[in-house]
Write a protein that binds this DNA or RNA. Structure first.
Lengths: 189, 189
DNA sequence: ATCACTTTTTGCCAAATGACAAATTATTTT
DNA sequence: AAAATAATTTGTCATTTGGCAAAAAGTGAT
C-alpha cells in the first residue's frame, strides 16, 4: 500500500486524512498467472495498482491472432480506462502473466474517492497523461525499425521483463513472429 | 476563429466574455509550404489551432534520416507540447507541408488566458488527452501490420491527406521506404 | 515549348521476415 | 525418473522489404 500512496504523492499533495480515506477503500487482489484482471466483452469494474507481477493487455485481431498491445508492471496503474470510465464493454483482455498482487478499488468506491478528495482527479489526470505519453514513446519506437532494433529497444524499456514473460508475448508485442524473434535473439547474443 | 471556439466548446463551457477574451488574444499566422511552425533545438513559443493546411512533425534519427512522426490537419491543435510547457528545446520540427492558416497565441498570452479563465485548463487537458489517445490508436495500427495494411489504414485515418502530401512523407510516417510504398500503391490500385 | 528541378516509379539484387512443420529444449505432473 | 505438456529453436521456402541507381512522370519558371 505504501507504494501506491507514494506513487500518488508524486503527482500532487494529499493530507493524512485523505490518504487514510484512500487506504480504507482499498483492497488487495491476488491473481494467479494467466488469470484475468478484466476481460473483453465485459465492463471493467476495477481500478488497480500493481504491487507485484506483470499484466499484459491483449486482443484478438481479425484473423483471430492474439496480439499483445502492451505490458504493465510493478508500481503502475492498471485499468481498462475506456471501459471503466464510460461503462462500456471492453475490447481487450488484461491478463496476469505472472502471479500478481494488485491494490484495487471498486468503481463505486473509486468514484466516491474522486468526489470526496479535492485534487485527486487532478492527480489521476496527470497519471493518465503520463501513461499515455509513455505509450506513445514506446509505440513510436516500434514503428519504422526492423525487428532487431525493436527488440533492443524493448529490452531497454522493459529491462526487467524480458526474462519473465513468454517469448510469444514479446513477439506479438513487437509485431513480429515468434520464430523471427527467436532468430533475432540468436544473432544478438 | 469560429472553428476554434466551437472546437473548445466541445470540451467544456465558456461564456461570451471568456470567448471574447480568447479572441482578443488570438492572432492569425500564415505559413507557406515548407515553413516551420517550430523547430528542433528551439523552445516552442506558440500554441496554435490549424484552420487551413497540414503540418507534419518530424525529426532526424541517428542515421540522419528524416522521420515523420505524424500529421496534423485542419481543426486540430498544433503545439510542441513538451517544449512549450516546460520551456525546453524541442527535438522535433513542426513543418507546414501546405500553405497554412493557424490561429496562434503567444506563450505569455496563453498562460494569461489559462490563469484568467476558470475551466480553460480543464478543457485543454481534455483536448490533450484525446489527442494522445488518437496518437496511440494510430501508432498501434502501424505496429504489427505489413506495409499494405499500414497504408490502407493510413488512408482511412487521413482520407483527405493522401493526395495533398508528398509520398516520401507518407512513407517515413509508415516506417517503410518510398520505393516500397510506391510498389504497394501499384498493387492496390 | 523548353529547360531545370522535384517527385514517383522501376529494375535489380540482397537481406529480412513470414508461414508452416519438425525438432529440440524446458517445465510440470505423476 | 519418466511421461506429458509447453516453450523455444531450427529448417525450408515463399514473400516482403530495403538499398541503390536509373528511368519516367510531374511541376514550375522562363
Amino acid at each position: 500500500m505504501k507504494e501506491f500512496v507514494e506513487y500518488l504523492l508524486q503527482f500532487g499533495n494529499l493530507n493524512q486524512q485523505q490518504i487514510d480515506l484512500i487506504l480504507k477503500k482499498s483492497k488487495e487482489l491476488k491473481l494467479k498467472n494467466n488469470e484475468y484482471f478484466s476481460e473483453a466483452g465485459k465492463v471493467a469494474k476495477q481500478f488497480g495498482f500493481i504491487t507485484e507481477g506483470i499484466i499484459r493487455v491483449c486482443y484478438y485481431n481479425d484473423k483471430g491472432e492474439e496480439m499483445t498491445k502492451y505490458f504493465i508492471d510493478e508500481n503502475n496503474i492498471v485499468v481498462d480506462l475506456n471501459s471503466f470510465d464510460n461503462s462500456i464493454p471492453s475490447s481487450a483482455y488484461l491478463q496476469a502473466i505472472s502471479d500478481c498482487k494488485i491494490i484495487v478499488f471498486s468503481k463505486k468506491d473509486w468514484e466516491e474517492l474522486l468526489n470526496t478528495i479535492i485534487g485527486l482527479d487532478n492527480i489521476v489526470r496527470k497519471i493518465i497523461s503520463k501513461a499515455l505519453l509513455r505509450k506513445v514513446v514506446r509505440l513510436s519506437a516500434l514503428v519504422s525499425d526492423d525487428g532487431t532494433t525493436r527488440y533492443l529497444s524493448f529490452m531497454e524499456q522493459y529491462p526487467n521483463l524480458v526474462n519473465r514473460i513468454p517469448l510469444s508475448y514479446v513477439a506479438s508485442y513487437l509485431g513480429i513472429t515468434q520464430s523471427s524473434l527467436s532468430r533475432i535473439r540468436k544473432n544478438i547474443c
